[in-house]
């Protein structure tokens, strides 16, 4: 076994990087980072067929209606709306209106940070207090899912912004709160106290069909 004269017995590893790069690029391209994100809602319990639906006793001023028809036209409080970007502010103003301040919600109102108090207009024609305020969202079977999601997004956004401001954080941070940790759970409940997310998604009309 005369090995004299050979330069080096090593395997040439200069192409190793290229091979690794190729594999790396393959995995980079095929990886889909799992996106378990979305808009969460809790559905109402099953309607009891033996009981007639309860009569609506709410005052009209406490209900903020949004309707979408099968050609994706939007009606907000009986007024047509072209661009939904203003919806979030309208919802916030509606929820924070405090038309009737009684003893119970005086404390709630006082606890609000000034940025939220300034949104409160205290007009007769809008909601009495946040607990009474209901957002009613009604779509049609022919409404496109895209519009539905973007409106739901705006509605939830309005609430999350209110919650976030109450505990002094952004809406994004509020949504990221981990309820398993006691101090974050405390913030979560404190933010939502007195402000239930009353988004009612009505059963859709059937004019558009599917």
């Amino acid at each position: 076994m005369a090995r004299t004269g050979r330069k080096s017995p090593e395997v040439n590893s200069s192409s190793m990087a290229d091979i690794a790069f190729l594999l790396l690029i393959f995995f980079l391209v095929t990886t889909t980072i799992a996106t378990d994100k979305g808009l969460t809602i809790t559905l109402p319990p099953k309607a009891d067929p033996n009981q007639p639906p309860p009569d609506i006793t709410k005052n009209k001023r406490n209900i903020f209606t949004i309707q979408v028809n099968s050609s994706d036209r939007i009606l907000v409080e009986e007024e047509p709306m072209e661009d939904i970007t203003g919806l979030r502010k309208m919802v916030k103003e509606f929820v924070l209106n405090f038309g009737k301040i009684d003893q119970e919600n005086q404390a709630l109102y006082n606890s609000l940070p000034p940025s939220l108090k300034s949104l409160s207009q205290k007009v007769e024609t809008s909601s009495d207090n946040p607990e009474e305020a209901v957002i009613s969202f009604k779509a049609d079977r022919g409404t496109s899912y895209d519009i539905y999601i973007s409106i739901l997004d705006e509605l939830q956004g309005a609430y999350y912004e209110i919650y976030g401001e109450r505990v002094g954080m952004s809406a994004d941070d509020f949504r990221a709160l981990d309820r398993k940790k006691p101090e974050q759970e405390e913030k979560y409940t404190r933010a939502r106290d007195g402000f239930p997310m009353n988004i009612s998604i009505a059963e859709p009309t059937k004019i558009g069909g599917n």
């Binding site: 994100k37 979305g38 559905l43 109402p44 079977r141 409404t143 899912y145």
Partner: peptide, 25 residues
Amino acid sequence: TKMGIVVDITQKMRDVNARKLMYAA
């Protein structure tokens, strides 16, 4: 997709008491 089929799904979910729903986005 149109909302019709989505609403049908949510109705069935209510029937079997699976009430937590997420619209992936």
